[in-house]
């Protein structure tokens, strides 16, 4: 089924990009709810202490559970994860957005950082 964008037109997919829409928000609710709980330090500690038990509390789907267990960011996104919430989980693992970028693009962290720097080359500031 073609998706309908905000202007009611059929929208061409954007390569490498998943819009976090109603389908994703429904599919990803449990995973995002778990990540949202990590705003509380006690919940982060509980996750660290017993990850399996914590996953069970939030009734993650098998797909979501596997993606979390494998630290598979693209898998979490495919399972409805939203990056703003997933960032809270990444923080528990000590990963920043360059680490997460590297995981998603198949680059090393050094390569990913270089790719970011390269985009600024030759720009006139101001």
């Amino acid at each position: 089924m073609a998706s309908v964008n905000d202007n009611g037109r059929d929208a061409e997919p954007i390569p490498g990009t998943t819009l976090f829409d109603g389908d994703a928000a429904q599919r990803g609710f449990a995973l995002n709810a778990m990540c949202y709980s990590f705003n509380d330090a006690a919940n982060r500690a509980a996750f660290r202490a017993d990850e399996d038990a914590y996953l069970a509390r939030f009734a993650l789907t098998p797909e979501q559970r596997l993606a979390v267990q494998q630290r598979d960011v693209l898998g979490m996104i495919a399972a409805g994860g939203n990056i703003y919430y997933l960032a809270k989980l990444a923080g528990i693992f000590g990963l920043n957005v360059q680490d997460v970028g590297a995981l998603q693009t198949g680059m090393s962290v050094a390569e990913f950082k270089q790719m970011l720097l390269d985009q600024g080359k030759g720009l006139n500031h101001g």
Partner: peptide
């Protein structure tokens, strides 16, 4: 900026 997906790291001056 784009944080998520295989296009993570995308920018467009």
């Amino acid at each position: 900026h784009q944080l998520d997906g295989a296009r993570a790291g995308f920018m467009n001056p």
